[in-house]
Each structure stands twice: as C-alpha cells, then as structure tokens.
Computed example of a mutant assay.
Amino acid sequence: MSNADAYRVRREPFYQAQDNEVAHYEAAYAARLPVMLKGPTGCGKSRFVEYMAWKLGKPLITVACNEDMTAADLVGRFLLDASGTHWQDGPLTLAARLGAICYLDEIVEARQDTLVVIHPLTDHRRTLPLDKKGEQVEAHADFQLVISYNPGYQSLMKDLKQSTKQRFTAFQFDYPEAALEVGIICQETAVDRNISEKLVEIAQAGRRLKGHGLDEGISTRLVVNAAALIGQGVAPADACRMAMVRPITDDADVIDTLDHAISAVFG
C-alpha cells in the first residue's frame, strides 16, 4: 500500500446534500481552487469533506487546528533519534507531496502567524517553502487545501484575515431543513421516523434560542447522538437532555426552557 492509499476513504460516508454543493465542490476541485467551508458546529462540514474525498477518490489528511499549533506542526520538523537527525514532514507537507486533500478543521483556532505558511499553496505558486530544510515543495497536481470554521465564534482575536479569506472559494453551510434532517437521523441511527421528527422539533426549538441564552444551536450531530441513545434503550426525554441540552449550556433558565420543550414533545 502506498502512502497515499493509507489516507483514502475506504467506505462511502453518508452525506445528505442540501443544495448543489457537491457539483460546486467538484468544479472547485477540477480547477484546484482552495475551498473554505463556513457554518455552525455539527452541521456536516467535516462529513462533506470526507464524502467528497471518497467521491473523487482522493486521499484525505485532516488536521484539527488548535491555539497551540505551530507552523512546524503543519509543515514538519527535524527530529533526533538513535540514528541521528532526520526530517519528518508535517500533515500539510505530506498532503502537498502525495496529492491529497488537506483539511484544516476550525482553522481560526490556529495562531495567525501559523496560517501564513498556507498562503503560497493557495495561489498560482502552489508551493510550500520548508525554510528549516532549505527546500521548496511543489504541490502535487492533485493537491487541494480545504479549511473550515464557525463564523458564530468570530471575534477580533479569532477571525481570518482578509489576506487569507480571499484566497479561497467559500461554501456556506447551515443546519438542514426539517425534512432533510429527519431523513439524516433515520439513516444514521435505528430510530423510526416519528421519533426523528420529534427530535428535530426539539432541535429547532433550541436553535431559536441562539443569541438569546445560547451561543450555538443544537447541532445535527447532537440530534444523532440523542437518537443513538434512544436506540440503546434510553428513554427519549432522557436522551434529549443528555445529548442535546446538557452539552451546550450551563444556564439554568435555558436548561429549564429546553427541558420544558422536551416534556411537551415526549410527554
């Protein structure tokens, strides 16, 4: 198995298209344009990237960005072992060499000085300078860079600079419409349509509280978690409290409001 094969998505991930984003991504990939996915937590951005990597038959290397991530974590560093010093590629460098899709998840969590290293890969140069090694990596013809972030968490301290944003084509994601979301829950879990509809009803009630006590709405991911608990025999109301309410807030008033909504739906 080649290095590239080790990063291929072997099984088709379930992804429910909401619009024409699949065709639009295929066009962006054909032009090798960098892609930016914007949308709330748990709305399907990462699943979409995984699905597109599978559909296109390309390896996928994912990096979960965080505030401690350095440029060396992305591009690589020299390591010392018993045999001496050797260079180890970081995930971004590896993706550029192999022709993989490199997915930087929640990129705004990374430090601004770290993000500068991606710039030469996102324009006509398609190169990655490895200053410490004295090498300039020419990106493989199949390489593509994809980033994601949640605009709801933007702040003056955590936002992408225009010099970074304008290097990407952008897709706006949101929670699915009710009928689509019900279908997703049924596909992803063992619960029936009636239960799925009730779970989505509660999720939508929670989303209406965004900005009114909740920083973030109840995501599709959390609805799937609740359905999975129900499939394991947990009472529906308890599953909703465990998976859809308690993880997203500690505010007693908001918890009380959502608990009342759960009781109204499930009795």
Results as ranks from 00 to 15, higher is better:
residue 86 H to W: 12
residue 173 F to H: 02
residue 192 D to V: 03
residue 33 L to E: 03
residue 58 K to E: 05
residue 83 S to A: 10
residue 264 A to H: 05
residue 142 D to S: 10
residue 196 S to A: 15
residue 136 Q to A: 08
residue 70 T to P: 00
residue 5 D to K: 14
residue 207 R to M: 09
residue 244 M to K: 13
residue 92 L to D: 04
residue 225 N to Y: 09
residue 257 T to Y: 01
residue 122 T to Y: 02
residue 168 F to P: 01
residue 193 R to S: 11
residue 103 Y to D: 04
residue 246 R to Y: 10
residue 105 D to S: 07
residue 252 A to V: 14
residue 242 M to T: 12
residue 204 Q to F: 11
residue 240 C to Q: 05
residue 47 R to D: 05
residue 128 L to S: 05
residue 257 T to C: 07
residue 63 V to S: 03
residue 84 G to W: 11
residue 105 D to H: 10
residue 25 Y to H: 02
residue 23 A to K: 12
residue 233 G to A: 13
residue 94 L to R: 15
residue 191 V to C: 10
residue 256 D to R: 15
residue 177 E to V: 12
residue 203 A to F: 10
residue 217 G to V: 09
residue 8 R to T: 12
residue 264 A to G: 08
residue 23 A to Q: 12
residue 125 R to N: 07
residue 239 A to R: 10
residue 70 T to E: 06
residue 90 G to C: 06
residue 78 F to E: 14
residue 199 L to A: 09
residue 141 A to E: 15
residue 68 D to G: 14
residue 29 Y to G: 00
residue 192 D to G: 15
residue 149 Y to P: 00
residue 75 V to F: 03
residue 23 A to L: 13
residue 71 A to F: 00
residue 237 A to M: 09
residue 147 I to S: 01
residue 20 N to C: 08
residue 137 V to F: 03
residue 83 S to V: 02
residue 21 E to P: 07
residue 233 G to C: 07
residue 86 H to R: 15
residue 44 G to F: 05
residue 157 M to D: 13
residue 22 V to K: 12
residue 75 V to E: 03
residue 72 A to R: 13
residue 147 I to V: 14
residue 195 I to V: 15
residue 200 V to E: 14
residue 213 G to N: 04
residue 189 T to H: 07
residue 77 R to F: 04
residue 93 T to L: 02
residue 114 T to G: 05
residue 46 S to K: 08
residue 267 G to L: 06
residue 234 V to N: 04
residue 76 G to N: 10
residue 145 L to Q: 01
residue 206 G to Q: 07
residue 265 V to Y: 06
residue 220 T to W: 03
residue 16 Q to H: 07
residue 69 M to Y: 02
residue 168 F to Y: 09
residue 165 K to W: 11
residue 154 Q to F: 06
residue 225 N to I: 00
residue 155 S to N: 12
residue 254 V to G: 05
residue 34 P to Q: 02
residue 235 A to N: 11
